[in-house]
Design a protein around this nucleic acid. Structure first.
Length: 153
DNA sequence: GCCAACGTTGGC
DNA sequence: GCCAACGTTGGC
């Protein structure tokens, strides 16, 4: 069964416009270095729908929709000493960190702001509102639908 | 740039 | 296994 997710990124690093530019391709979602977020990524299935959330920027909120194009595989950056995401404790035999591939679905006409998300009754119990600083999180079908409706306005 | 939340590390 | 120190996230 298809599931719903939300991923956060700073748009300077990887935002919805990077996915627009790769409209017919995929982007590797890498650099996640939090175990809870990683574990959620490992549950993702091809075809799952994903909201992209822009954090730490002028226009904070949900900026578009993506789709899982490839399930979990080892994040190559953990083995790359040149990368800021290099993890000296990562073992190629037993990789610690996970990537998935994500593909563009749509860009929001305007960003659905965090202020509006916080006001939505359907999101009061969501990870997004309740738990700070989690960069990959599941959404319930009801949470997904409420956001979809707000985005369509 | 500040700072609260919170995850990780390491000494004991 | 506890917990203080420290680092990171991310809104403001």
């Amino acid at each position: 069964m298809s599931q719903f997710w939300l991923v956060k990124s700073e748009p300077d690093e990887c935002g919805i416009d990077d996915f627009v530019a790769k409209r017919n391709g995929v982007i590797r979602w890498d650099g996640v270095r939090n175990y809870q977020a990683r574990n959620f990524m490992r549950e993702m299935q091809v075809g799952d729908e994903v909201y992209l959330y822009h954090s730490s920027c002028a226009d904070i909120g949900i900026a578009g929709t993506l789709r899982v194009a490839r399930t979990a595989y080892p994040d190559p950056l953990q083995f790359d000493p040149e990368s800021t995401y290099f993890d000296p404790k990562a073992d190629p035999e037993q990789p610690r960190w996970t990537s998935v591939d994500l593909a563009f679905v749509s860009k929001a006409q305007s960003v659905l702001s965090l202020a509006k998300l916080k006001q939505m009754p359907a999101l009061q119990d969501s990870h997004l509102v309740k738990r700070a600083r989690l960069s990959v999180m599941p959404l319930s079908a009801a949470e997904w639908a409420a956001i979809a409706q707000a985005l369509s306005h």
